[in-house]
């Protein structure tokens, strides 16, 4: 990725844009002395658990769509951040993983969507359980600045950020 594109990356969450303390690196060594690092899954799994837990830096993990989250499950309470990748907007595997991590396994760290994040998927991502989105797409950035999320007034299925709609059991209303 070119330096110019790198610069345009912005981190966004329900409250708006925020600073990103993390850097992405292939290994801890390659990360220099950055206080917060995201490692690829294989590198993360290769770390000694004690080293990782006693480290004074935050060490998050990036998971590609084809990679399995099972090895992470028993360590969830020690992971500060999981970044699920969207190499293309239409590769939807990370939605199911988000749902499993947040909904089933109670992951309480930061769940981040990275990759091809477009405006039309923002609401899906939030509802599936993502806390933050790393955005580079120009239209998405503009719309998020204007808080124009392409949301609907109600939803037909359970999801985060919503409450029972007082109607059929599967319906939900957004909570402010």
């Amino acid at each position: 990725m070119s330096a110019a594109e790198q610069n345009q990356k912005q981190l966004w969450g329900r409250e708006g844009f925020r600073d990103d303390p993390y850097i992405e690196a292939e290994s801890l060594d390659a990360a220099g002395d950055a206080p917060a690092v995201i490692l690829p899954l294989a590198a993360w799994l290769g770390l000694d658990d004690d080293v990782r837990r006693t480290s004074n830096r935050r060490i998050g993990v990036a998971v590609a769509p084809g990679e399995d989250i099972d090895p992470l499950l028993e360590k969830l309470d020690t992971i500060p951040l999981i970044a699920l990748q969207f190499p293309a907007f239409n590769d939807g595997r990370s939605y199911s993983k988000a749902e499993l991590l947040k909904g089933r396994h109670g992951f309480s760290g930061e769940l981040r969507a990275v990759g091809d994040v477009l405006i039309d998927q923002v609401v899906f991502m939030l509802r599936a359980g993502f806390d933050t989105l790393q955005v580079t797409n120009r239209i998405a950035l503009e719309r998020l600045k204007g808080r124009d999320l392409h949301d609907t007034p109600g939803y037909y299925q359970p999801g985060r950020g919503s409450a029972q709609a007082g109607s059929y059991s599967w319906r939900r209303m957004p909570v402010a």
């Binding site: 590769d91 939605y95 899906f124 509802r127 599936a128 939803y155 999801g159």
Partner: peptide, 15 residues
């Protein structure tokens, strides 16, 4: 019921 539940399903719109 399936029509409603599947409409803009956040997890299942990019199968």
């Amino acid at each position: 019921i399936l029509r409603q539940w599947s409409s803009l399903h956040p997890e299942f719109s990019y199968l």
